[in-house]
Structures are given as structure tokens and as C-alpha cells.
Amino acid sequence: MGERILIIEDEQKIARVLELELQFEGYETGVAHTGTDGLILYREQSWDLILLDIMLPEMNGLDVLKRIRATEYDTPVLLLTAKDAVSDKVAGLDLGANDYITKPFEMEELLARIRVTLRFRKKEALEEADPYLFTAGQLRLHTQMREVTWQGEPVELTKREFELLAYFIAHPKQVLTREQILDAVWGYDYYGDTNVVDVYVRYLRQKLESQLIQTVRGVGYVLKEG
């Protein structure tokens, strides 16, 4: 069974062409010709992607998008916009649209954008289901593969640096004392200087080129969202 795409488009000829092309590509489709009917259909069934025209009767596309994003951000929305409607494109992206394509458009380009959007959604879903993957904003750490990326770039860490960062990312936004960090990363039998935590935090800051790990004066450290 293919992915399900909801088409909300008031021009019936365009909607029909989209429906036939998408079905030919193996997608299941639903069609609505007004903003109100589109919102009803969206709420009644489950969809993998929504093609949403902005200029709709009864309720315009931006209002439909606003109502969708008021409840969830998981379903990708690709806007169909008029050629000169720059403000609508900006407003749509600000409201949570994933992408837009300008009318008139080439069907191959639209299909390519749909494929990319759905691929990205699948990737996100797989990552969310991966128990070994931890994220904090643009920081990503995989405990099983022992890989770290920051802003999409790989970061090379020593074993101790990795364990320290893994401890931080497992406790995001939580203020951790030096003693807690020592016990978790260096072990309960460590009797050295607690300043070793400060040294390794400095190493991480240098390698990430970021103040993602922030000092809480008199207490310890906290990992903020990147």
C-alpha cells in the first residue's frame, strides 16, 4: 500500500490531473475542493502528505494550515502558490509548511519534491524509533555506533569525551553537579580532583566550537538545546 496524499485544490481540472498522476506513481489519494472540506477530510483520515493550495473558497489554505499546525507538526504540508505571492510563501513557511511549489509547475518537479519530503519524514520516524540515538537541537549522538555530529558535521571524540557528552545528552536541560558527573562518567571509585570535569567540558566546547554545555555558577553544568 502506497503513501496517502490529500489534495486540497479548488481548480477541479488541476486536482484531477494531480490525482491521476499521483495514483500512477503508486500513491493513494483523497481530494477536496474547498478549505473546509479539506480540513474535514484531513481530520477524518490519516495522511502521509498534504498538497494544499493557498487560494481556496470558504477557508483559504493558510487558515487550513494554521488549524493543522495547531494540533500537530508530523504531517508534511506542501503548498501550491501563485507565481507572485511571495508574502503567501513566507507566511506559509512561518506557519509550518514543509515546502512550496509555484503554479504553473512541472509535474516531475512536484513529484520530486513529494519524494524528498516523504523520504525526510521516514528518516525522522526511523530516528525517533532508534533507542540508541540522542539529539539536542543540532547535536546528535549515537551510543551504539559511538558517532557524534554537530550541525551536520562529524565530531571526533576520545572515549572519555564521548562518555561525558553522552551523559549530558541523556539529561538535557538538567543541571548536573560535578559530583554527579564524576560518579556517572569516571565511576564511584574515582578519587581524583573534581577539576577534571571542568577540563573535559572545556575539551568538548572546543571540539563542538559551541557553548552548548553551559556553566551554572556554584553548582555544575547544564546541556542546553543546540
Rank of each mutant, 00 (worst) to 15 (best):
M1Q: 06
R4N: 09
I5A: 10
I5T: 10
I8K: 02
D10M: 01
D10F: 01
K13E: 14
R16N: 12
E19N: 15
F24P: 00
F24E: 13
E25C: 08
G26E: 13
G26Y: 13
G30E: 09
V31D: 00
H33N: 12
T34N: 05
G35I: 01
G38Q: 01
R43Y: 02
E44G: 03
D48W: 08
I50W: 00
L51K: 02
I54T: 02
L56G: 00
L56D: 00
M59A: 07
N60W: 03
N60K: 05
L62C: 03
L62N: 02
R67W: 00
I68Q: 03
R69A: 08
T71I: 03
Y73P: 05
T75E: 07
V77W: 00
L78W: 01
D84R: 14
A85K: 10
S87C: 01
D88Q: 13
K89C: 09
V90W: 03
V90Y: 01
A91V: 04
A91C: 07
L93F: 04
L95T: 03
L95S: 06
D99R: 01
D99P: 05
T102G: 00
P104A: 08
L110H: 02
L110I: 02
R115M: 01
T117E: 04
L118N: 05
L118Q: 05
E124F: 04
A125T: 09
E128G: 07
E128K: 15
D130Q: 12
F134A: 07
Q138W: 06
H142W: 10
H142C: 10
H142K: 11
R146H: 12
R146E: 14
R146M: 14
G152E: 04
E153G: 01
P154W: 11
L157T: 05
T158A: 06
T158M: 04
T158G: 15
F162V: 03
F162Q: 06
E163H: 09
E163G: 07
L164I: 07
Y167M: 04
F168R: 08
Q174A: 12
E179L: 15
Q180H: 07
I181G: 08
Y188Q: 11
Y188P: 00
Y188N: 08
Y188I: 01
D193A: 11
N195C: 06
V197G: 09
V199H: 14
Y200A: 02
R205L: 03
Q206S: 15
K207R: 12
L208A: 11
E209P: 00
S210G: 06
Q211T: 08
Q214H: 11
T215D: 12
V216C: 13
L223M: 13
